[in-house]
Write a protein that binds this DNA or RNA. Structure first.
Lengths: 349, 349
DNA sequence: CTGAAAGCGCTTACAG
DNA sequence: CTGAAAGCGCTTACAG
């Protein structure tokens, strides 16, 4: 059975050149679509390429041309549909531009992120799209990626200071405004005791959303009690576990919560259930992201639409623009978010 | 501001060799951890590597050594958490083995899949892990990837015949058994009119699950009406849209449905809602995959656990084994699945 | 319009 | 233990 296998070396330019009696240079010109080559010669070469089943070795070409045809995409939490959609958007746009995506996943650990970046950078990506781990630090990331590779930061800032010479681009969400809108919406539904639930305060995205919440509460003249701030890992599981903390204090129990993101909000809904409460009926909840299941959960989740797939395309576009013009001033885009009202924030019945 | 940037060429072995007065060969031996190098020399070289911030060019090394340090992962539907988890598992195992993952996404279109494979193969992956699009055909895939690159097929078979010489490995789920268990469970709950909902019959995974369903129905002496087979794209959205078809016929309306997968089951639940029914109360539903939200939905979803992250690690392990021993006979692993009973299949109240 | 030659950044027998 | 040389599969001035 093995003998049937069409084995042997991979076909190279030399094989094609030999096969139709021209030089390697000519074959290369044909491959790259040069107008210099005679029509007849071109046809002969193209036939030979097909006949031998030639596969272009892009790595060799990149080495010689000192170019890159890949981009590294490092995601903190691929299992979160928000980031999975983002990754799909990135890959879509990069693929259309002829780049391949080198995938890395940090599991929201700065240590893994560092190892992953160190490994990816050896494969010579033309650029990096990084959605940082919660505790990721600028200094460490810079050490891992060096100063030769452009970076687009997505979703949150790095901890610490980035040296001025590292002018990285940024694509962030309008976290403050989004959380403010969600909070105002709950206030409009009649709530007075509103918690801010989930995420860790050392992450910039969490701090910004918390700030938006605080602004709206202050603007409405509402007090904020300290036990209304419950932190958690931004996953559904950990949020469900942490839900009880909202009701353990001797202070006033909240009747609503602005959640760090949808994963946390869905986890909180489950946790509420376990504490004899039901979202959308005796407790109001808002999320952030508008992942697909937000519309499908019961009750459906009031949240902020962030269009993660579109954000992925946008991040890829930013990086492609940077590759075209490495000297352009670095930019920050704050993507708008939009409140989507559903059942989970119904007024109390 | 630009002038502050530490610019300039990337550092190569030549720079290091020149920087500490040894030859390129010696530096290379140090990098690769050869025991031939004198301790003192090694220390001097390592210091110089650090000082100049050397980054290994793995593409150049791969070219010279005729090796590969990448694996292509082509997923049909990255936005589906089942596949996102699978991808995370693949990346985890490949990364630990020193490989980088080249990501591709086909959006369940055989045409896009073909284009993606054609692009990825030019980057010289050592192997390919392919979760095929619904309508993907063996002949076309073989044409895209050639006969030099090992392939691990996940989740479903390709259409048509694969030539014997292409001995690809397979990792499949025990679809037939899983669907049979789900059906038997519903019968045990007292249901007699059970539909099979979602997926397209031209996909092998769908056919196998449908076969398991049919077996269980026949074994129990239950009839199967033709309008109890409703097809859909295996996404939540399309399933929600298709739900109505279960009740439009003049025949007996089903009281339960075995669904192709969790995405479809969750979509059906939503669709039921829109038709005045509620899963877990007046209609029973089972899924397939046990994605994270199956446990979290309301009602929680009775489904078949497939452990997608573990499957990802397993697929990567299969490919790594194949790279170690290209001549080993090709194998098929049928991963077991396990029924997880939750609220969505409660007996009718 | 086509070919000979040099070189991208590495590795690896082979001498010494 | 270290260095000189050849070569992985490409591309690109440069001659002709």
């Amino acid at each position: 059975m093995e003998s049937q296998t069409p084995v042997g070396r991979k076909i190279t330019l030399n094989d094609i050149a030999a096969g139709c009696g021209v030089s390697r240079a000519t074959v290369s010109l044909v491959l790259r679509g040069s107008p210099l080559v005679n029509k007849v010669t071109r046809a002969r070469v193209e036939e030979e390429l097909r006949r031998q089943g030639y596969v272009y070795n892009r790595a060799a070409a990149n080495l010689r041309r000192r170019t890159s045809s890949s981009v590294a995409l490092v995601i903190n939490e691929l299992a979160n549909p928000f980031f999975a959609e983002f990754a799909a958007g990135v890959d879509e746009t990069l693929g259309a531009a002829g780049f391949v995506t080198l995938l890395g996943s940090s599991g929201d650990s700065a240590e893994r992120e560092h190892a992953v970046l160190g490994s990816l950078i050896e494969h010579g990506p033309g650029g990096i799209i990084l959605s940082p781990a919660e505790d990721s630090e600028a200094r460490k990331v810079l050490a891992a990626v060096g100063t030769h590779t452009p970076v687009v930061l997505f979703n949150r800032e790095l901890g610490g200071e980035l040296p001025e010479y590292a002018h990285w681009d940024r694509l962030m969400l309008d976290n403050e405004r989004g959380a403010r809108q969600a909070t105002e919406h709950l206030i409009g539904q009649g709530h007075r005791h509103i918690a801010f639930f989930g995420g860790h305060d050392h992450a910039s995205s969490t701090r910004e959303r918390h700030a938006g919440y605080t602004q709206a509460m202050h603007a409405a003249g509402l007090p904020v009690e300290s036990h209304w701030r419950v932190q958690s890992t931004p996953t559904r599981m950990d949020a469900a576990r942490a839900a009880g903390a909202l009701f353990e204090s001797s202070g006033t129990a909240p009747t609503a919560a602005v959640c760090y993101n949808d994963a946390v909000a869905l986890g909180l809904m489950l946790g509420l259930h376990q504490h004899g409460r039901q979202a959308g009926r005796d407790f109001a909840v808002t999320g952030f992201d508008d992942i697909a299941e937000a519309a499908m959960s019961m009750p459906s989740l009031t949240t902020l639409s962030t269009a993660p797939r579109a954000r992925g395309r946008q991040a890829a576009d930013m990086l492609l623009a940077r590759l075209r013009d490495p000297q352009a001033p670095s930019g920050t885009i704050i993507a708008p978010v939009e409140l989507v009202v559903r059942e989970s924030s119904n007024p109390l019945s």
